[in-house]
Design a protein around this nucleic acid. Structure first.
Lengths: 364, 364
DNA sequence: CCATCTTACTAAAGCGATTTATGAAAAGTT
DNA sequence: AACTTTTCATAAATCGCTTTAGTAAGATGG
């Protein structure tokens, strides 16, 4: 067999910084400095280099840049479940900020599975992420040790392992939930139920606590039966509502720990023949896009996904590029009631201006 | 000022393959071959190396691997709009396959904006993706030139620029849509409307054509007024349904180009007081998760996101790792009717077992 | 006109892995 | 025992870029 002197690579190689340098008649260092906008490059030379880049249609290789510079410009975004509409809305905001600031994001959907979470974290570390936003609303601390021990900056919602490079998004659940309760109270409701999320999550505990303290404030103590645990899914909301409907006495209003739960509750009520808000009022939490389009449009407490995304991104960035954003450990997030049509007067309260409870038809 | 011999890096460096090699008492080459499961490594040595990796908690640096091996193990996933529930379900499937096969995905949500699309493509090229799944259901060919000219494998839905490394997912719209039309026909419907997606998209044209030919098959020709263009969003579905309600004569059944459209239509119908399916039947397309939970549960044509994701992933993989998957240029995707409760007998058809139509609403 | 600064470039040393060429030791052959 | 073959580890080159150190050219000054 004939042995060729050296297996010459015949494949057409990816365009190089070298190719650009040759084309522009400069060294590769100059090309690099031009691309990175180092100010000590002569104007005319820079122009020439840019022209070559243009003409050759050269795109720099991020991997090589990352390897030598030690900066991957990659953030991890860890979420619970991408099919829950809350998260895509969050991702969208995060992606916008990433693009704007020339970062890339690596999304990991854990599906509430610790093993899956571990895989995602490992992959993120291997890809050398510069920071991770943990938006799972959970505590999976042990799983995050790998990140902490590597000093990778992180940002959590509502909770955080104490560490140098960790920030927290501190959601003010109390404000919005209190508004919701006061709204219901103003409509004459005294029989209030709450469908929580999975109670082992810190965020869910906080929401429930906010509800209970707001309810106490109006001098009401809810039945134990009216505090039901859901799981933040539509199906969970349905199950929880069904359970509520089994209690001896019905509440006149139900607050839910998130909108998917509330939407599930609405489904069950519709199926059961109970009218919302005539027979029972429903309040959600999150204000996802869909909330406006269910029937009836959902009164809910808004927690802006965009605020959340912005704060998460800013927090990570402030760890990575100190001085760029004002660094802090805790980023406040506001919540606020949005009144739509799933809340109304408590049944039995009749006011002159309220129409007799009858289905209303409106053609638009 | 005292000048140190060399600015020694004091920062704790990331764990190296060198560190592992030293710890295990072998060369870095051996560590590399161990990690990559090259069979010529001595069993005992390999065990020793793995033990060191374990003990040091070493994670290889993907960037370095990618750089030298020329394989990024990165696929781009281009979608239209992450907040449309269809896409997260698709992403989920794609992510599962990616994890399973040790790939990472870079998601780009174009929001129907060509400029945004261009940015996403550029970023993907810079990150050296090995392939791109273009799931936008659109044709944005000119924007993809950058990818084609670099010989980056791609996979499209329903359409493809003719090129070596491009595959197509060929959705059999006709099968499912025909089933839907036949189902309606069997229920006595002759007055059929169709709300399409944005008509410039190939996929939407195909869906509409499938509808028209299926309708022709049962000997019906729909009013021009009953062919309305939507935009595949909930709001678009609402607008389209409102438009349908303005026509002189109502259709008794509406097929929609996707589920979001159908859900929008349901909202409008509910608001108007028309009962589904008593007064009008509605059929969707896609069978997103939500379809089962709207009221009434939506009869829809299922196009499995998982099938789509699997085919897209396999197609890319077959380009990148020839021999692994059976390569082909066209990957068939089936569609199939799922009957739920948004379809029923056409009004006026009275059968002994069908309840008398309690009341009819004349709108307008 | 030579010494001293600036300015703006280039050469070269990595970044952390993979991979090829090479060679030492072990095993097999005559 | 001397030679060939096999087995398996190592050294070194390389991927495409950034960045530091070094240097040539021009400006300034005595």
């Amino acid at each position: 067999m004939i042995k060729r002197p050296r297996q010459k690579k015949v494949e057409k190689k990816r365009l190089d910084i070298r190719d650009v340098a040759k084309h522009a008649g400069v060294s590769i260092a100059t090309v690099s400095r031009t691309i990175n906008r180092v100010p000590t490059v002569d104007k005319d030379l820079a122009r020439r280099v840019w022209k070559s880049i243009e003409e050759l249609n050269y795109f720099p290789n991020t991997q090589a840049r990352a390897l030598v510079s030690g900066r991957s410009r990659l953030f991890g975004l860890l979420i619970s479940e991408i099919t829950n509409p809350f998260f895509p809305e969050l991702i969208q905001g995060f992606e916008d900020f990433a693009i704007e600031n020339n970062y890339e994001i690596l999304i990991g959907s854990t599906n509430y599975d610790p093993e899956r979470m571990e895989i995602c974290i490992r992959r993120m570390i291997e890809r050398n992420v510069e920071g991770v936003a943990v938006m799972t609303f959970g505590i999976e601390e042990p799983l995050l040790d790998e990140l902490v021990s590597r000093n990778i900056p992180m940002v959590f919602v509502d909770t955080a392992p104490p560490s140098e490079n960790v920030s927290t998004l501190a959601v003010d659940y109390h404000h919005g939930i209190r508004e919701g309760v006061q709204h219901l109270a103003a409509l004459g409701h005294r029989k209030l139920a709450f469908i929580s999320g999975p109670r082992q999550q810190k965020s869910c505990q906080l929401r429930e606590v906010a509800f209970l303290s707001s309810v106490a404030e109006i001098g009401v103590e809810p039945h134990k039966q009216w505090l039901v645990e859901g799981d933040h899914t539509l199906e969970g909301g349905m199950r929880a509502m069904e359970q509520l409907l089994k209690s001896n006495e019905f509440p006149t209003a139900v607050m839910c720990s998130n909108d998917m739960t509330a939407i599930g509750a609405l489904r069950v009520l519709a199926r059961t023949g109970l009218r919302v808000p005539d027979d029972i009022s429903v309040v959600g939490f999150d204000d996802i896009h869909l909330a406006e389009f269910v029937y009836p449009p959902l009164t809910t407490v808004r927690m802006s996904r965009n605020d959340l995304a912005r704060a998460a991104f800013s927090a990570l960035r402030s760890h990575v590029e100190p001085g760029h954003a004002n660094a802090r450990r805790s980023w406040p997030i506001q919540t606020k009631l949005t009144v739509r049509q799933s809340t109304g007067y408590a049944p039995g309260i009749s006011l002159s201006k309220s129409k007799p409870a009858r289905r209303k038809f409106k053609v638009q």
